[in-house]
Amino acid sequence: MNKVKIGIVGLGRLGKRHAYNLANLVPGAELIAACSPIRAECEWAGTELGVPELYASFDEMLEQASLDAVWIASSSTYHAQQALAALERGLHVFVEKPMGVTLEECAEIERAVQAHSNQVFLVGFVRRFDPSYRYAKDLIEAGKIGTPFLVRSQTCDLDEYAEFQLEFVKTGGGIFLDMNVHDIDLARWFIGSEIAEVHSVGGSFVHQGFATLGDADNTVCLATFKNGAIAVLSASRTAFHGHDTHTEIVGTKGILKIGTTPRKNRVEIFDSAGARTDCVRDFYERFEEGFITEAREFVACIREGRKPEIRPQDGTAATRVGMAMTESFRKGTVVKLQI
């Protein structure tokens, strides 16, 4: 098969990374178009990556560019409508998480993917492509820790990004949909069951602006699964040491711990201040290999005519739980999910 011609929409903090990968690090991919309403971002794609076709409008890109696939890395509120428009045009679709910010959007996407069964559709749950998380999943499936019954997982961003997040939270779905969506997906993936009940607590302990938006800068959720397993999922916008994502899976015969210390590398520093290690600064540095593997899998699925492991139903489930976690936090009550 010839190279897969891809157009990307969204060239922000993460979108630029995706665009670089597609242009330089994904065999079989050709990034021929980029779209952003911000002129400087489009100019960056043209100058730095040599993308030949630049658009301010997503609809114009769909109409004018000769695409095989679209890569959606725009603001969360646009994910569903852009994915639906691309599917209707017969294009393969990668969409960043969350797949949709309402269950109605997610249901529409599920129906559209079913109606266009020859097209590849992939939701960006990047941690499933991280070598350490993939290895943990393989160990679980091999029975190395027995039956998993507890997942503890957290996502913590650097405090210096909090001011940016204050603006993003207005359209991003809030801390649970924006940050914990990965932890939700991992918990479901490792436990192999659906979350049936959630109880979320939290607050704006460092940045009071989040409280005025009905959101928080630090949260914890206790989730119960349909099969009786449990998960503790936390998120923070106020980590001062680095991007701190880690997960623990407890089974009847053992425990797996992934990334407990967010090490930048294997160097340990010993000096007059004591012993320490440098930490990764952001989510992309931590999951750089996962992002590249994710993109390669999307293109490989298209070229080989196969479907990804991640289904649109996984995107719907993550949104459903994230919305329930938000409702629990705002109402101060336990929320039972309809599953």
Score class of each variant (00 low, 15 high):
Arg296Lys: 11
Thr219Tyr: 15
Pro131Gln: 09
Gly12Trp: 13
Ile269Lys: 13
Arg276Met: 08
Leu22Lys: 10
Ser153Trp: 13
Ala162Cys: 14
Ile255Trp: 13
Ala300Asn: 05
Leu139Gly: 08
Gly228Cys: 12
Glu30Asp: 04
Ser74Tyr: 05
Glu304Lys: 15
Pro27Ile: 07
Ala19Cys: 02
Asp314Leu: 00
Ile184Gln: 05
Ile184Glu: 05
Thr245Cys: 13
Leu103His: 06
Thr252Cys: 11
Gly174Glu: 01
Leu213Ser: 10
Thr238Arg: 13
Ile32Val: 15
Lys97Val: 06
Thr245Asp: 10
Lys5Tyr: 09
Ala273Phe: 14
Phe58Ala: 11
Leu91Pro: 04
Val151Ala: 12
Lys3Met: 07
Gly28Gln: 00
Glu104Cys: 04
Val335Ile: 15
Met323Phe: 06
Ala318Asn: 09
Val169Tyr: 03
Ile140Thr: 09
Arg303Ala: 06
Lys144Arg: 13
Gly332Asn: 11
Glu108Val: 02
Tyr78Met: 02
Gln82Val: 03
Ile72Glu: 01
Arg237His: 15
Glu297Tyr: 03
Met179Arg: 12
Ala29Asp: 01
Asn180Pro: 05
Lys331Ala: 14
Leu14Trp: 12
Ala19Thr: 07
Ser66His: 13
Val201Leu: 14
Gly259Glu: 10
Cys301Gly: 00
Leu87Met: 07
Gln81Asp: 01
Glu163Cys: 09
Ala317Tyr: 04
Leu177His: 02
Gln82Ile: 03
Glu309Val: 04
Pro262Phe: 08
Val267Gln: 11
Glu309Cys: 01
Ala107His: 06
Asp282Ser: 15
Glu63Ser: 15
Gly46Trp: 14
Ile6Glu: 01
Asn227Ala: 15
Ile249His: 04
Phe240Tyr: 10
Ala273Asn: 09
His92Lys: 06
Gln154Asp: 10
Arg286Glu: 12
Ile109Arg: 02
Gly46Met: 12
Thr260Ile: 13
His199Thr: 03
Glu110His: 09
Gln114Cys: 02
Arg237Gln: 08
Phe329Thr: 02
Ala29Ser: 10
Thr316Asp: 00
Ser132Ala: 15
Thr319Glu: 07
